[in-house]
Design a protein around this nucleic acid. Structure first.
Lengths: 164, 164
DNA sequence: GCAAACTATTTTAAACTTAAAACATATTTT
DNA sequence: AAAATATGTTTTAAGTTTAAAATAGTTTGC
């Protein structure tokens, strides 16, 4: 049992399709990096990836975002975003205010404390990512980013076709 | 001397940025496909991706696997695997027996019913994957698989370095 | 032999996630 | 203007996931 494979690709058999192989490898790579980052966030900042993600979205939008946009950007359910928001408000890291014109919608925004906290985490986060991905080399990174850009585009297209 | 110094530093920062960008794109792509597959599994077979994953690992190993191996292969916690196993046993899709020589360890194995069920799901699964990834084109798929193979290798190396 | 250390797994408690229902507010229709 | 419909968000209930503690069994060092 010594040379045992330890990831999603382990299930491959010889006649598997190239698409399937790519999908399993994609899943392996993102799981590897994601598990690393998740563990580091917990260890150093006692927080979680979803919470970090949430704050990262807001950091790019100084005017804040409405809950629906956040849900779409993070590709998770509205209820999920709602729950994370409640925690972050309790910790004083974000504000959540209803709009004047439409009292159904809420805008969430980083507080000063939230921004300060996020900046500290983001600096470490980038270091972790570079540890994981940097060794691949710049040429490979550029090429991978380009190809994944294509994949994203075609997947989104396929998705909207099937929802017609 | 100053110009050269600044150049190197600027280059470094730029490279770092690329790592981060690639990571976010990787996460986007796998989330897109993963959400599609997850939703399809629920809709057509009323099951989940982890349960499918679990059975997929067993399908390749007619002699079964011990819980620890499964946890490593699926890159999830042991407790998680344990919970999934309990469900699958209840549904009669796998067996779970303790070993003669070491009564701590359990071997899980697909039952006949489990294998039959899995084969049906796997066929559809491959169709969904091809819908999502196939449109990228064979050349791109090959190239992506190769680059992700590199990424996997370097990430695993970085990981084992940091665990020394 | 036997206690200490180790290993494999399960259980537990807390956090996360989702779909669906509920709620609150806006907009459109009649 | 009332009713119907649509929209944005939260709540709920059920299931998933994790780290850590607990349990059970095995191996090691004296």
């Amino acid at each position: 049992m010594s040379a045992e494979q330890i990831d999603h690709e382990a299930r491959l058999v010889e006649d598997d399709h190239h698409s399937l192989k790519l999908w399993l490898r994609l899943l392996t790579c993102s799981s590897l990096v994601e598990n690393n980052i998740r563990e580091s966030l917990r260890r150093e900042f006692n927080t979680t990836l979803p919470r970090f993600d949430f704050m990262a979205q807001l950091q790019r939008e100084p005017d804040g975002l409405v809950m629906g946009s956040l849900s779409k950007r993070m590709m998770v359910s509205g209820g999920n975003v709602s729950g994370i928001a409640t925690q972050l408000v309790k910790d004083g890291l974000i504000s959540r205010d209803s709009l004047k014109n439409d009292r159904r919608t809420f805008v969430v925004k980083l507080t000063a404390k939230g921004l300060k906290t996020f900046n500290k985490m983001a600096a470490r986060h980038e270091e972790w990512v570079i540890e994981n991905i940097g060794p691949l080399g710049n040429d490979n990174i550029e090429q991978l980013a380009k190809l994944l850009g294509e994949l994203k585009r075609t997947t989104l297209t396929a998705q909207s076709e099937s929802n017609k």
